[in-house]
Amino acid sequence: MVCCVKVVAQVKLLPRSAHDADALATTLRACNRAANRASEVAFAKDFKRRNPLQKEVYYPLRADFDLGAQSAVRVVKKVCDAYATLKANIRAGNLGPEGSRRRKRAESKPIRFREDAAQPFDDRILTWNLDARTVSVWTVAGRVKDIPFVCSDEALKLLASRKGESDLMMRDGMFFLAATVEVPEPEPFDPVGFLGVDLGIVNIAATSDGQIMAGRGLNRCRRRHLELRRKLQKKRTKSAKRVLKRIRRREARRAANTNHVIAKKLVQTAERTSRGIALEDLTGIRARVTARKDQRSRLHSWAFAQLGAFVEYKARRAGVPVVFVDPRNTSRQCSRCWHTDRSNRVDQARFVCRSCGTVLHADHNSSRNIAYRGDAAWQRGAVNRLSPTAG
């Protein structure tokens, strides 16, 4: 059996006319309003499985929201998937630092969908023409044919092996389609050691080879956007709100691009040297760490989980083994003599061992400890902990 890794290929739609754009926007609104109606029924009657919920709401959704047969089915499936995801997150404790409060709030009312939330389409209501780079989409105003799309050459290659659903999304008045593609996954090779990676805020990543990937530029960008948001929010004018709306995703896009670049470098380095990658398991760190008020924005904008996910799926496509290790005392333990003491960490950037006198960059020392723990875990029989999906 050939294993596959799931990758998301995204394209941008270019509607030929205002009528086509309005038809797509109206369809998203209708589908999400229908999803809210179905969610209310699912919550009130505890119909969280597809068959009983579809039997209850199928005909009312078609009549009240002018949906086609297959689009109504997709709406019901979307609602059931949302409740299944919520249940899984509650079970795994993935609701953030205010988990108990969020859990009570989530269990006390039905799930709500934004009017511009993504809507899944299958091959019955969405057709791809990759040669002409167009799509044909069902809408509440009828099928809109030959809508052009643009994408990278890599995304076009991925779409050639596309199967299943594609999600229609709207962001800032622009329309996108995201298709999940299964790519054959090579067998992970037997690593000759591990590349340890220490994740941080001041330095986004530091490797056991001594490479430091500083976060100065990204942190400056975050501070600048934070001050700009504060200034514009104080004004409370229409023009200030327009600017806020225009810039709201810039910081997230820059952070994602930075993480993609770093993840690619890490995977290429590990693949070239026939090593695996060892990362810290930072699950729940925001709930464990107490930050001062002036540092909370930095802590909560730290995209370590995104970087870890990017490393995981890029490594999986390259056949590079990845293991996650316990992060405790990696910054206090000497990577040469294993002496552990809080006073070893002199400051943010400097590590001085009180036992053997070793002096290293603090993040470099941590990454060496992570590499050692990753190799030890692999020798004990650890397996890849790789996500089933990636984007």
Rank of each mutant, 00 (worst) to 15 (best):
S161M: 04
S166V: 14
M170P: 02
R171K: 15
F176N: 13
T180S: 14
V181N: 10
V181H: 06
E182G: 07
E185K: 10
E187G: 08
F189T: 02
F189I: 05
D190G: 02
V192I: 09
G193N: 09
F194V: 05
F194W: 09
F194A: 07
F194P: 04
L195P: 01
G196F: 14
G196D: 00
V197E: 11
L199A: 15
I201C: 12
V202T: 10
N203T: 11
N203P: 06
I204E: 02
I204V: 12
A206H: 05
S208N: 03
S208E: 09
I212N: 06
G215K: 11
R216A: 15
G217I: 01
L218M: 14
N219C: 03
R220K: 09
C221F: 15
R222W: 05
R223N: 02
R224K: 11
E227Y: 12
E227C: 02
L232P: 09
Q233M: 05
K234T: 04
K235Y: 01
R236I: 00
S239P: 01
S239H: 07
S239W: 11
K241F: 09
R242L: 12
L244Y: 03
L244T: 08
R249K: 11
R250V: 08
R253E: 10
N257M: 08
N257G: 07
N257C: 08
N259D: 15
I262F: 03
A263M: 02
K265W: 06
L266W: 04
V267I: 13
E271N: 02
R272A: 14
R272I: 00
T273E: 13
S274E: 04
R275H: 03
G276T: 13
L279E: 08
D281Q: 06
L282M: 13
I285A: 00
R286W: 10
A287G: 03
R288Y: 00
T290Y: 00
Q295H: 13
R296S: 10
S297D: 07
